[in-house]
Design a protein around this nucleic acid. Structure first.
Lengths: 221, 221, 221, 221
DNA sequence: CATGAATGAGAGTTCATTCAT
DNA sequence: TATGAATGAACTCTCATTCAT
């Protein structure tokens, strides 16, 4: 990063468009080929931009990947923050959170995989990856503590470990579904996750009290 | 893979030793640097073998990685197959399986990560990765069905989805612990996983009935 | 050089200022980084001028360097032409010329070095470099011939070779002092050069008439 | 310098030959094009070696240039150290030293120029350049002091400054002759230099007492 | 078989110059 | 004229694989 490339957003409309085209093209190519196998020429070719123009906007392959990854992180953060409407029942909240996370992961699975791929050797992306995951787990921790205070969740569980594992369960499921082609009925997945989660923290889980549509899950992009 | 390298075991003792040294060195270097950043020279250097000799034993970098990966798969398979002694209570069986898997993952985490890293672009390793995981999940499926037949586990659950998710939960936990440095008390992890698992399939889980040592968990390789 | 840039002086005051700023900035950057390592962006950045404007005033990096070099040549020419007041004694004339040359070189050493650096591959700058040097040597030739005619300098010397060598001696001394950090007392340098020069052409050089501190009592011979 | 290239001399005869061919080719190309304009491909092409083989022997363009420069320094050192036979008269010693230096410079002029060219930005080569020059000047200092002790050279001169300037005079003359095409009769040059030098340090210089051949000057490589 | 030098097709990055606005 | 983004040829260095010894 030698500072030659425009640091912030380029000032002109044309520049903004070109930069955006590069980021979009980069995301596609990174998803298709991974980080190492992505060539700058591949990005510029897809963006319809001259090779050298890449370096007008980004200092390196890492830099544009960071840009892509930040966008992904934003989307995942939004999904993690999305809460069910006030007054929603605990189990529906869990169902909602699970569904939103799966939806978000579905849209970002391949690029998330690339972020994870390079994270061992790029601390920056490792952090980003852990932050995305961390936020989701934090929400589970907070939600579980609230349920404990309300007296509906078991009070004898290790909330941190439990939240990490339940979050991991959903994340891993997302990976299997969207990266490794494991096939399950989406409703069954959400319902099974909800059951495991609810029972795991000591809620009384019975048959799905309402259809998934009613709680806004699986909005199908 | 042009078949130039010895296909089976090399006939001489010396050759066998060299080949073994290469595989061992390769595993170490792959763990340290990942697949892309591993150099043939790095492997031969660590193995104390001449550069050119590499191609006497292996056709390519992929070939030796495959050899390494097969070894890892074997170790993981063994862990997945390990069952608690006959007569063990269901919850102790779960605790046992969880502990064995975590132990096996701890010993193979880094190389598993590398296998996963390259799996998107190498169908062979993708299959291997899925097989390792698949065997573990199959065992959960079988175990759960047995518990259903015995009438101790809920009968209304989707066993395939449940097993995939519980397996994923444990696997993801292993990743967080051994690859991303998430810190948890190992006993708490095993116990929390056991609780989530047991409750999730409808068993009556209460306080840990015995200390972890007694069921052979955390055997420290 | 396609002639797109304004050939002569730009007509407007604003343009003249910009051009001047570019030349001044160019000289500084060339001095600091040499020709190859100087970037157009470095020049425009220091001049506070838009990148693209550079080509409004100059056709190429060579063109602006030529402009800079011409300025340097002018300064050096002035120094070479500077003669001691009429009636000055021969040795004082030599001392004067030496001092003026050293002063001029001190002010232009770094850029002179750059001119010389690129001279092997740019005939234009090679000529310029040789002209600067040539004028100085010519003055020495003329002065020496005059002294020969006056009967105070040896008549059996090859004036061209002698002048070239004496000029080179002073020039080389300037290079060592101002480019390579060789440390000498400036007065000693001037005096030593004067002595070598004077004695070399056969003048009677005795004690420096202006430095009473200097010891140096010569043998009567 | 990442240490991949063979550090010392390559062990095999073949390797030695290849390395030598590269150094020889490099010297030629550096002389023709200067440091910046020399391409690795130019060196390997001339040496009849594959592009990649360059990096088997050298880590970088700087590394091979250093090798070339060390060779040149060696030749120049030898010339500087060369002394006239015992019993040679002082003026003949000066004539000898001058001639040897000019001969050595003639053979190394272009590469010396390249060393100087890059010296401002490469401290290593700057040192080398100054060492070459320094040794020659030291010899002059030593010789002059001896002549002072013998009572034949002026005792009131600043030997360090005088030696630097006389050495610089010869060096500069060499540059003009061999780099800038200034034309002088070689014998006249040697004789003029000898005269200026001798008279400058106070020796009684008269007409050349013998022909240059007799003192081993201008040995034509 | 053992050895390690030889090979050369890329890869990312630079930057003088051009050109659209 | 002023601006700064656009262009793409060029360059160095890498390294899996081959091959001569």
């Amino acid at each position: 990063m030698n500072g030659r490339a425009t640091t912030g957003r380029p000032p002109t409309e044309r520049g903004r468009r070109k930069r955006g085209a590069l980021v979009q093209a980069a995301r596609e190519v990174f998803e298709e080929r991974g980080f190492e196998d992505t060539r700058i020429a591949g990005i510029t070719g897809r963006a319809g931009v001259a090779y050298g123009s890449f370096y007008t906007y980004f200092d390196s392959k890492e830099a544009i990947f960071h840009e892509v990854a930040k966008g992904v992180a934003g989307e995942m953060f939004d999904a993690a923050r999305s809460a069910a409407p006030p007054g929603t029942e605990p189990i529906d909240r869990i169902r909602h959170a699970t569904g939103r996370f799966l939806d978000a992961y579905r849209d970002n699975a391949r690029i998330m995989q690339v972020i994870e791929q390079i994270s061992p050797r790029h601390p920056l992306f490792r952090s980003l990856f852990l932050e995305i995951r961390g936020l989701f787990v934090e929400r589970i921790v907070a939600g579980t503590r609230r349920l404990q205070e309300e007296g509906v969740a078991s009070s004898d569980i290790d909330v941190a470990a439990t939240a990490s594992m339940l979050g991991g369960m959903v994340e891993h499921t997302a990976r299997m579904l969207y990266l490794y082609g494991e096939e399950h009925d989406p409703e069954v997945v959400v319902e099974t996750a909800t059951r495991l989660w609810a029972r795991g923290i000591g809620l009384d889980y019975e048959d799905p009290p309402r259809s998934p549509e009613e709680v806004g899950v699986r909005d199908g992009k």
